[in-house]
Simulated scan of single mutants.
Amino acid sequence: MEFCDNCGSLAPANKAVTECQQCGTSFDRPTIETAQTDGGSPAQTPATELEKLPMTNSGNIKKVDAMEWLENRDQPAGAELRRAMIEKPSDFTGSTFPTDISTIRVTGDPQFIETVAGLFSWIVGMEDYSRRVEINLQKTDDKETGEQTDNYALYLSVAERG
């Protein structure tokens, strides 16, 4: 998702549109820097601090490194949050877990969910003519008994309108 740096309007999903429909400012469409590998094919250069963290063979980041990384995160501005969100394509099927589609999942007791949900209220403003907010708020089930618990799950994502 992209937003106009000048007025904050949501950029259309159509990448051919290069100017903001609200104020006429040109969109600064981000590009990923690439480097040539030995085989001659481009390789992505890590763009975030997260991608630079040391990882185990199984893909885990050690707690000490993860804690230091988390401690050094700045609270993002609203426009930065909106730009970071990757929407689900309208024709997408299957699990989003192995994709780069942005999904937020929070689980816990009602007090925790209600408190933390305030951190994500900015997502509501992302719904417009070209995108919709997907929200699933439900009680959780105990996997062993199948009974509903007193806890909740909140799932949030943004999808292209079909």
Rank of each mutant, 00 (worst) to 15 (best):
D128V: 08
P54G: 15
V106W: 08
I86D: 05
K88V: 15
L70M: 12
G59Q: 08
G125K: 04
V64T: 10
A43W: 06
A43H: 08
V116M: 10
S121F: 15
K88S: 11
L50E: 07
N57Q: 11
A77V: 03
D128G: 10
G59Y: 01
P54F: 07
A77W: 00
M55Y: 00
A66L: 09
E49T: 11
I101N: 00
E87G: 11
D128A: 02
I86P: 00
G94W: 06
G59L: 05
K52F: 02
T56Y: 10
D91I: 01
V116A: 10
D74I: 08
E127N: 04
D91W: 02
D91Q: 08
A43D: 12
M126R: 04
M55D: 05
S58K: 12
F112I: 13
P42E: 07
G39I: 05
F92N: 06
E49V: 01
M85R: 02
A77R: 12
I61H: 04
I113R: 01
S41Q: 12
E68I: 15
T56G: 10
T93I: 02
F92W: 03
P110Y: 08
G94N: 00
G39R: 02
G108C: 05
F97C: 14
F120V: 02
V64S: 14
D91N: 12
F92D: 10
N57I: 04
E87M: 07
W122H: 09
